[in-house]
Every structure is written in C-alpha cells, then in structure tokens.
Nucleic acid binder design. Sequence first.
DNA 1: AGGCAATGTTACCGAATTGTTACCAGATTT
DNA 2: AAATCTGGTAACAATTCGGTAACATTGCCT
Lengths: 212, 212
Amino acid sequence: MRGLTDAFTARGCVVVSAADGQAGLDAALSAQPDLILLDIMLPKIDGYEICKAVRSRGVEVPIIMLTARGQEADIVRGLNSGADDYVTKPFSIGELIARVNAFLRRRNSGREKVCRFGDFVLDVAAHKLFRNGAEMELTAKEFRLLAHLASRPGRALTRDDILDAVWGSSVFVTPRSIDRCVTTLRAKIELVPRSPRYIQTIRDIGYRFEPD
Amino acid sequence: MRGLTDAFTARGCVVVSAADGQAGLDAALSAQPDLILLDIMLPKIDGYEICKAVRSRGVEVPIIMLTARGQEADIVRGLNSGADDYVTKPFSIGELIARVNAFLRRRNSGREKVCRFGDFVLDVAAHKLFRNGAEMELTAKEFRLLAHLASRPGRALTRDDILDAVWGSSVFVTPRSIDRCVTTLRAKIELVPRSPRYIQTIRDIGYRFEPD
DNA sequence: AGGCAATGTTACCGAATTGTTACCAGATTT
DNA sequence: AAATCTGGTAACAATTCGGTAACATTGCCT
C-alpha cells in the first residue's frame, strides 16, 4: 500500500512496511514500532495469526486491523485476537490517521518515557537522571534499580522481584547486594538517607518507591 | 438505551447511564468509570463537547463514541476531541462488546486489588493499610495475617489453616504465636479489642474475619 | 600490567519483630 | 462448685532483618 506509506511519512512518521505476513511479523518484533497497521488479507499467514503471534510474544503495541470484510464475526475475531481497533475498507486516509493519532496520543500521555518525582526527572530512554535540571551521576546498577522501582510506583516489590528485574534471573548474587545498591542510591537521591522519602523499605518484604 | 445497559450488566459490568449530556458529564466525573460509551446526538450538549470537557479535566479513561453519522469528517472530529474509538450505527452489540473488551483488556494489566472493611482499606499490592485515609503501621506478620483473614471474609479459619498460609508449612511455631499476633493486630485495628468486631475468635476452631 | 570505578561479599551492629512462657479470666464440663 | 480447658495478654528472650563499613573481586581503560 504505497498510498498509506506516503500519507504517514508525509506526516513525519517513520514507516516500516512488509510485503507478506511472515515479513511483517519479523518486522513487528524487530523494529519495535509504536503502532502496527495490519491488513487481514495477506499472503502466507493471515492477519489474525500475525496478531496472535505478536501478542504472544508479549508485545503490547497498539494494532489496528485493515480489512475489506465488514462482517461482524470478522471484527469480533480481529479484536479478540488482540487487535485494538479495526477499520474496514473502503476507509479514508483521514479517518485512519485520526484513529492512529488517538492511539499515539494515548500512549504519549499515559506511558511517558520520563518519570518525574520530587525535583527529579528520570529519563529512561536517555539513561539519565536530573535533579532540578542538573544531571546526576548514577552507576548502571543504581540506574536500573531506580528505573525499576520508579516504574512501579507505590507498589511493594519483593527482593526476588527486584533481583530478577535488575540483576537478571540467571545471575546469582547475595540478596544483600540489593541493600548495598539501595544504600548508595539513597545516598545520592534522598535528602535524609536514614529516613528515606522515595525508596522505602518494607521489612521482610522488600522496597517500595513512593513518588512525591 | 436500555438494550446496551442490559447487555453490559449481563456481562457483569456495572453500568451508570445518563439521559442527557450534562448528566453524563457529571456522571463521568463523579463515578470514575473504567470506560465511557458516548452517544454523539444528545440533548443539551453534544458528544464532542462532552468529550473535550471530560478530557480537559484530565480524565484519561477510554471513550468510545456511538453515532448514526458515518461521515469521515465526523469520525475525525470525534477522535480529535479526545475519543479513542468510534462506532457507527447500526452496530451489533457483539462488535461493541468486543471493542470494549479490547480497551478493558489493555487497562486490566495494571489492576490493583484493594480490600475494604469498616473504614479501612487494605492495599495488598502496595502493602499498606489505611484507616480513613491515614496509613497505619503493621508488621509483616500482622499484615500477612490480616490479608489472609480478609481474603476469606465470613469464613471460619482453623489455626492450622492460618499457620500454613501465614507462617508457611515448613516452619515450626507454637500455635500460641497466632494468638499473640492476633492480639497485636486487634490492638491496632479493633476499636474495642476485648470485643472484636472484625477478627472474631471461634473457640476450639480458630478465627473468622467479619467485614462491616 | 597497572589503575580505577563499579559491584559483590562478608561481618558487625542496632533495632524491631517474633516466639515462648507464664499467668489470668471466662467458659465448659463433670 | 471444682476441675479443666481455651484463649488473651504481658514480659521476656531469641531471632531476624536491614544499614553500612570494610574488604574482595571484576572488568574496563590507558
């Protein structure tokens, strides 16, 4: 669909297109797009299967299906295989763009890549932490730990959970390594490390990140 | 639209419906729904305005618009005023439900379970207990005990059962440890620990948690 | 190879939690 | 009514847990 590609590139999007189902699936998994437009009628693998395959890999990116068929059963089937929206041909480019925007807007407002707390800004993508606009030095472990805590604000995280996410499930380290990392991290971000405001310890459980 | 209300209540949803735009706007802001179905053609205020009004209050709940009009311009306008999806009449209930599910599925990933009783809120995910909004300090054992009791309200739990769930099947402790923990827990949450309202003892058996 | 920073490990300390024991009161039984 | 049983609870003891300093190790850079 050259027309679609042109329309979106003209709007400043970066478009990756694929000729058939298998190629599209590979592209979806490797290119990590912000949104997927998926035609149902495809050579080799049909759109429903692609959709399921993508979702089964844990990819949660919005998927909008495009199809000539307008039967209710198809729509239901499409949405149930993991699509988020469904547009039937013929559709106008304008409508499609509006729907795409609706998803992108949502994503941008909801899951921002930066995380704010107190007078800190944590930019995960850039791997940087700022306090009042000034960049702070964090070690790799400290950063990952902070990012993981901050990504689940207000939730109690067990030591195992943290170990898994920050150190990786395969490595073996003493659970005390967490404490040590927490100590150094607190020394950098907490005003009073002895009575932490952000990284709270839950005795016998683990830690909890408390924004603001 | 009685048909819609019935269809969703039948599927276990709690439905709040409103007769006109103003009422709907009020309801949307006060009821804090998980999703809004919004008819465009409404008396008093039209759907686009409602949509903008809801969004301008910072409410980010998914909004699906329902309309008889299928013109591209209307669709674009709807999505641009903050709607996430747009369904044109006539539509089938099945399709609508599928679309609703697509949004709710997306939402449900970060669902938190809290447990309310009296003027307490027990937030297991955050590992916190609140009384009238004020956080209370509980020790790990107390918290686990309370969470276990509260997760089986109104049921008689044997000492063995509690020992297993809270202390773990592998550890060996005197059954009296339960009593001690119950005592300290009651001291914190019961108004009159001597005649407990929530944690009742069943002689010769164990305890029972009585919500409200 | 040497130096340096980051990270993991161990040990010790203090504090808080938790288990145990003992004693008491009320209920139940004989 | 006395004996007995069960649970509440206070007091004490033991244990556990997390903070942190000191030391060891790893890996990288020159």
